[in-house]
């Protein structure tokens, strides 16, 4: 596993590594599995030129898989973007200004294209007072609230999923506190994040994301949470 991750790291860092083991199906399968785990297949396809990779011995099958995944993620992103625009416009009309954070916020602020930052959902935080109205608005758009624990001291977030006619599904994680841990939940309030939020004009005129400093701190907090309960 270490070799495959080191190879991924080197390729994504621009070191142009050669494929180390020709004809080893297990290594190839392991490499693809780790690239899916880290969600970097579209980014790899963007950064690594295929003719150069072939000259360095990279298997055609690996490059083709990354090519198809890049297209699949582009398709998903376009659908997800259309949905987010609809949600953000609706909430803006209600006077509600959510703050996006984690994957979608980074996809639209740090990456050359949002489809390069693969992710499973979009995280947004609203004020404690607005959470019920936002939940109702999402349900009005056809989102289904996923079963989960509720109660002010049990959970500070709810997941909503919309499944389109073509089977494509899109999830939003609605937060009214930044973390479910009692210890960390009050570290960043919605109001604090909103006061420093940055616009995401590529997504929508109504889209705002946590500032880069807040995004870094949130990433550290998120990672520490995973270390505590992976």
């Amino acid at each position: 596993m270490q070799d495959t991750e080191a190879l991924l790291c080197a390729a994504l860092s621009g070191f142009n590594p050669a494929w180390p083991v020709a004809g080893d199906a297990d290594f190839t399968a392991g490499f693809l599995e780790r690239s899916v785990y880290h969600g970097v297949q579209p980014l790899f396809h963007y950064l690594v030129k295929s003719d150069q990779a072939i000259a360095l011995g990279w298997p055609q099958a690996v490059l083709e898989e990354f090519h198809w995944q890049a297209i699949a993620w582009t398709m998903w992103e376009l659908r997800h973007q259309a949905l987010l625009k609809q949600v953000l416009e609706l909430l803006a009309g209600m006077g509600i200004q959510p703050v996006l954070f984690k994957g979608t916020a980074l996809a639209y602020s740090l990456y050359p294209g949002p489809a390069l930052r693969s992710r499973g959902d979009t995280d947004l935080i609203v004020s404690l007072e607005d959470r019920v109205r936002v939940a109702e608005a999402l349900e009005g758009l056809g989102f289904m609230r996923e079963a989960g624990v509720s109660g002010d001291f049990i959970s500070y977030q709810a997941s909503f999923t919309l499944t389109e006619a073509n089977g494509s599904s899109h999830s939003l994680d609605l937060h009214w506190r930044i973390n479910n841990s009692q210890l960390l939940a009050r570290l960043f309030s919605y109001e604090e994040l909103r006061s420093r939020a940055q616009a995401l004009p590529e997504l929508s005129p109504h889209a705002f994301a946590a500032s880069r400093v807040d995004a870094l701190l949130l990433a550290c907090m998120h990672r520490s949470g995973h270390k505590r309960s992976p």
């Binding site: 963007y46 297209i71 582009t74």
Partner: peptide, 8 residues
């Protein structure tokens, strides 16, 4: 959209 070196 542009996906890598290809327009799709």
């Amino acid at each position: 959209r542009q996906v890598g070196e290809e327009t799709v």
